[in-house]
Design a protein around this nucleic acid. Sequence first.
DNA 1: TGAATTAGTTAGCTATGCTAACTATAATGA
DNA 2: TCATTATAGTTAGCATAGCTAACTAATTCA
Lengths: 151, 151
Amino acid sequence: MSTEEKDIRYQLADRLHSTAIHLLRRLRVQDLASGVGPAKLSALSVLVFGGRPLALAELAQAEQVKNPTMSRLVKDMEHDGLLRTRRSPEDARSILISPTELGRKLLLAGKKRRVESLADALKPLSRVELEQLQDSLLLLQEVVRRIQTAS
Amino acid sequence: MSTEEKDIRYQLADRLHSTAIHLLRRLRVQDLASGVGPAKLSALSVLVFGGRPLALAELAQAEQVKNPTMSRLVKDMEHDGLLRTRRSPEDARSILISPTELGRKLLLAGKKRRVESLADALKPLSRVELEQLQDSLLLLQEVVRRIQTAS
DNA sequence: TGAATTAGTTAGCTATGCTAACTATAATGA
DNA sequence: TCATTATAGTTAGCATAGCTAACTAATTCA
């Protein structure tokens, strides 16, 4: 583990952070165009692609957010008809959250808008470059999971 | 430009978005530990590494944020002694914004904390993988610049 | 020199984070 | 058994950071 490698990691970490910030700032425009913010779309996505109803705490953990934060997002989305909740038959303290058909449709439409603008920006890349990005993204997803939240 | 390639771009775009969201959520913890939020640290970073005083609109554009948003961030940071502003001698409507010594120190300390936790998560990667990430990040930075904000 | 433009600010709204304190339910153990 | 403790979620209240609309002050230009 050379000093040089450490330097590479530090510089890479810094640029990853900066790039993530700027990526999301650009995409925020498309997110807001759906009338549903990014946090809600992201949570809805977990429900739609998760394949089973989730408890509030599960959803909060999946989204790396505290329970009260998720509680409010869920309340808003239920009000908007994007998801429904029912009490768990096994534990009456717990709720089971599932997306509605409207929620699925809105998610896919919102995702389409957002993803399209990013996909357009990917157009100039060659097949090789796209595959390189895919590989790197796999690495990066593992890296993100490893970040220690307790400093 | 095959359909398959289009699919790859769409899937990649979607995962890029998701990964960026989760990366920043994890790092938010370290950002908040400095007592200065991520938006302020990012703007301060532009000032510190920019090398010259910037006008408000320049800083807002660099941070991809509207002027009123940056105006408030600058006001807060000036109040906290992280930067100073003076009227431009050339155009009395314009202000020139520079970081203070305190601002530089706080930026470096905050960045250290944040970058360290991300750099730690990069430790298990091999030299080859680090270099692959570096290359991909270059591609990604260009991609981000190409995202059309006007949908 | 009066009108239009430009730089920045202020006011007020929204979305999304947090902690602390609460309610309701479940599990434990004396 | 039933009182205590723990757990799931909610509510209240606060902070950060985005936005637009409407304003002030300075500059440019016809």
